[in-house]
Amino acid sequence: MRNKTYPGWLFFFRVNMAGFALLHFLAIQPDFDMLYSYKGYIYPDIMDTATDHFSPTLISLQHYVGMPYETLLMICRIAYPLALVSLLLGCCTRLSAILSLFLQLLMLKSIHLYEYGVDGYTTIALFYCCIFPVGYIYSIDNRLRRFIIAPEYGPWLLLLRAHLCIAYFFSGFDKVIGVSWRNGEALWKTLHSHNYYSLFSMDFLVHTPFFLVAGWGTILLEMGYCIGMNIPKVRMWWLGGIVCLHLFIALFMGLFFFSAMMILLNLCAYYTPYIDPERFRKK
């Protein structure tokens, strides 16, 4: 595989991270009132008592702005998707990214008892949109201000890759130090606990080494991520394995948004940087 990288991955990162956050937010709209309002499962002020009181919440912000809770909630409900659309288009990119990150954290910490892995990665992705020059290419800002970005990817791609390498390594390390992943028990429990969504039953594989092999395969994929993804000759194979792993998680555990986020991050880090835009212009 080619080793030369191209800055187009910044455009892919901006559009996909903003688009993903927007779709994720739209997906909770049918249950929005049940999560955030006083008509919901847990009253907002009761939820707020269990926070770390370091991150801002809607309740804490309400005390500063002197605004009714429902009014503030409606403003944030409208402002957050608008900020994400602005980020997606690359309009006032840095400001849109900062506003999106603030509103995402504000709304996430307001219902912190319901958050899980994908919410943390969404926060990380929006933070990277704040510090990466994602508005310097294929954006409204670029059209208006004529930004010039160096052909080299700079430290940003290296930072994204380092983050993924560390995350996958310790995810695999956490699995290998326990016995349940090494004997396949963890995977079996995962597919049979908590009413997880599953495309079809895999009980017929109970007397086969499938769960043992799949457990070790997951460990090796994650712990060897840093090496496999940075060796050009095996990069595409390792990337394919990681994508298949997350597709399995989506289809058999029902974690669709988490899987989509991880696939997009991997494509941003190890696939799109090698796409030469000139190749498409010549066609």
Rank of each mutant, 00 (worst) to 15 (best):
A18Q: 10
I98Q: 03
R14P: 01
I149R: 12
F248M: 13
H63A: 14
I98F: 13
L108G: 05
L84S: 04
W181V: 04
G135K: 00
I166S: 06
L221E: 10
K4T: 15
G217Y: 03
D33L: 12
G90Y: 04
F147A: 03
L26F: 15
L220N: 06
R77L: 08
L255W: 04
T190H: 08
L205A: 13
Q62S: 15
A79R: 01
S110V: 08
A260M: 15
V234L: 13
M223S: 06
F280R: 11
L205H: 06
T51Y: 02
A214V: 12
C76Y: 00
V85Q: 05
P7G: 00
Y136W: 07
L88K: 02
L35Y: 12
H246G: 08
L84Q: 05
S139T: 10
E152V: 06
C92A: 10
L58T: 04
I28W: 02
V234P: 02
P273L: 07
V234E: 03
L158Y: 11
G66I: 02
L144C: 09
G40I: 03
Y271N: 07
C165W: 03
H246L: 07
V85N: 07
L199A: 13
D276P: 09
D31H: 13
P232N: 04
N266V: 07
F248A: 15
W238T: 11
W181S: 04
F252Y: 15
G224Y: 07
K282G: 04
W237R: 08
I42G: 02
D33T: 09
P155T: 10
R182C: 14
N142D: 15
W188V: 11
P44L: 04
P151R: 09
G90T: 02
D174H: 12
F252H: 13
S96V: 01
Y6K: 08
G228F: 12
W216M: 06
R235C: 07
W9M: 04
I148C: 09
K39Q: 14
V15T: 14
Y80D: 00
G90F: 01
F257Q: 06
H192K: 08
E222T: 04
S198Y: 08
P56K: 02
R2H: 06
C244H: 03
Y116I: 08
I131S: 01
K283C: 10
W156P: 02
C92H: 07
V206Y: 12
K283L: 14
T57H: 03
L10I: 05
L255F: 13
G184A: 09
E115Q: 09
Y64K: 13
N183H: 09
M262C: 10
P151S: 11
L87I: 02
K175L: 12
M261K: 10
L84D: 03
L160K: 02
G66K: 06
H63Y: 05
L157E: 00
E278L: 11
S171Y: 11
R94P: 00
C92P: 00
A186Y: 10
C226A: 15
F211W: 09
L89A: 13
F280M: 11
L265D: 00
H112L: 06
I263V: 14
A79F: 14
S60E: 06
